[in-house]
Nucleic acid binder design. Structure first.
Length: 130
DNA sequence: CACCTGACTCTAT
DNA sequence: AATAGAGCCAGGT
């Protein structure tokens, strides 16, 4: 069953937990090429004319600058989920960014099974929620 | 079948 | 830090 590229994008977005945000680029990375940040934006733009079930939490997708792309309404929806924005309308992706994206990305690459021999482990991308 | 639209990201000034 | 410009794809009419 061949689903459109947009469908895969929607599913990736549906994996973003409440109170957490992901960037367009992040979603694109999860879906994989030829999906790019803008493609995600295009897919979401098309959402306005489609009712999906379950609904796609489009509000949790923001741009790489940590700012919403659709206007103050989206920001308000996120604030109701607990996401905090500063006066410049930016949020700290280190705190509210969806950390699960890295895992989803690895899965998409078929790296579900960690290799027994993993040399370079000197520098871990330690995700600190603080 | 061709044309048009659309919610991004990066790099350089 | 802010602004400007270039690159790119899928879906609907």
């Amino acid at each position: 069953m061949e689903e459109g590229l947009y469908e895969r994008i929607y599913e990736a977005i549906q994996q973003i937990p409440r109170g957490r945000v992901a960037t367009y680029g992040q979603i694109a990375a999860i879906v994989g090429p030829p999906c790019e940040g803008r493609t995600v934006g295009y897919a979401l733009a098309a959402l306005g004319r489609r009712l999906d079930e379950p609904p796609v939490p489009w509000q949790r997708v923001i741009n790489a600058q940590g700012r919403v792309s659709t206007g103050p309404n989206q920001q308000r929806l996120l604030e109701e989920e607990g996401v905090v924005f500063d006066e410049a309308g930016r949020t700290d992706l280190k705190r509210f960014g969806w950390p699960g994206s890295a895992l989803a990305w690895a899965e998409a690459r078929g790296c579900g099974a960690p290799s027994p021999a993993e040399p370079s482990e000197e520098e871990s991308p330690q995700l600190r929620l603080f």
